[in-house]
């Protein structure tokens, strides 16, 4: 089984910050907006390098979304930054009308997604944002898994014309994807080859899926792990090709099972190749305060949960 090395824990939001810094140097049309969370979003360096292209909007997310939509008129590529909750649910109608329906080239960059925001609790831990964003016609939805991939994705979305939701997180997690990777929107990345089960994961759950695959391998179960960084458009072919071989699938995400990656995968399977599926996701619930590790354990979003789901799905084959 192919194995991956953690080159040192890093937060995905710092990958976003590094990507934005790079874009500042290479693309003069990139502008950045932030709603009073510059430090949390790691936008300090872009701001220092390009004060004229950086817009502090204050605690006013609705205005930030509208400003970004307007800034595209005249050729700018705005990147907005705030927490995932305030990037989506709080401003849904602004995104819907002024960005998505108006086909504006805005990149909505959302940190602190999911339970791993930790101690601040459920008011700040959104587990519904992938669903909200993927339902918007024309919206691309990306959830990156580590620092390197988040940096690569940040740079890649500037070249893509159209609205994008880029979701990442707060905690320091394993950094294991290549530093020089070519990020292709909508293209799943197969991490391991396997014959018994397909595990498709997104965001922080990708590393957990690799850990799970190691455990399963020791039990003689060969898992094919696929990193689905783009939830919309979904790489249907990669999923169908893999389940054609394995005959069952586990989906894993830091999100409600309603509206998330798992449901998108179910749709593909239902239409083209009905296949037993198990969901590693939150079960229609809000989060709570706690450390990221405690929360991921309590809500069943880690490697051991993926192993358990695999054992269940294998029995359904």
């Amino acid at each position: 089984m192919k194995t991956y090395t953690n080159t040192g824990n890093k937060d995905t939001r710092s990958g976003f910050g590094a990507g934005l810094t790079e874009l500042g140097k290479t693309n003069e049309n990139v502008v950045a907006l932030c709603a009073d969370l510059i430090g949390s979003l790691k936008m300090d360096e872009f701001k220092a390098n390009h004060p004229e292209r950086f817009f502090q909007v204050g605690i006013a997310e609705a205005n930030m979304i509208g400003l970004a939509a307007g800034m595209t008129i005249g050729g700018k590529i705005p990147f907005t930054g705030t927490f995932a909750n305030f990037s989506t649910g709080r401003v849904y109608d602004q995104i819907r009308q002024s960005i998505a329906y108006s086909d504006k080239n805005v990149k909505i960059c959302a940190s602190h997604a999911g339970l791993t925001l930790g101690e601040d609790g459920a008011t700040h831990q959104i587990l519904e944002d992938i669903g909200l964003m993927k339902m918007l016609p024309g919206m691309t939805v990306i959830n990156t898994c580590d620092y390197n991939q988040t940096k690569a994705a940040t740079i890649a979305i500037a070249e893509h014309h159209g609205p994008v939701y880029l979701r990442f997180g707060r905690p320091k997690v394993a950094n294991f994807t290549p530093e020089d990777q070519n990020f292709e929107i909508g293209k799943a990345v197969q991490l391991t080859e396997g014959n018994d089960v397909t595990i498709v994961a997104t965001g922080h759950l990708v590393w957990e899926a690799l850990e799970a695959a190691k455990t399963l391998n020791e039990q003689g179960i060969s898992a094919e792990v696929i990193n689905i960084h783009t939830i919309k458009p979904l790489d249907d072919k990669a999923i169908l090709d893999s389940v054609s071989k394995t005959g069952c699938i586990v989906t894993a995400e830091e999100h409600n099972y309603l509206g998330g990656l798992g449901e998108s995968v179910s749709r593909v399977l239902a239409q083209h190749k009905p296949t037993p599926q198990e969901f590693v996701a939150t079960n229609d619930t809000f989060g709570e305060s706690g450390t990221p590790a405690q929360l991921m354990e309590k809500y069943g979003l880690n490697a051991s949960a993926i192993v358990k789901a695999t054992e269940t799905v294998l029995k359904r084959k």
Partner: peptide, 13 residues
């Protein structure tokens, strides 16, 4: 929503 959008366009100008 129009104030925000118009202001964004003004900033880009």
């Amino acid at each position: 929503q129009g104030f925000s959008v118009a202001l964004g366009a003004a900033e880009t100008k």
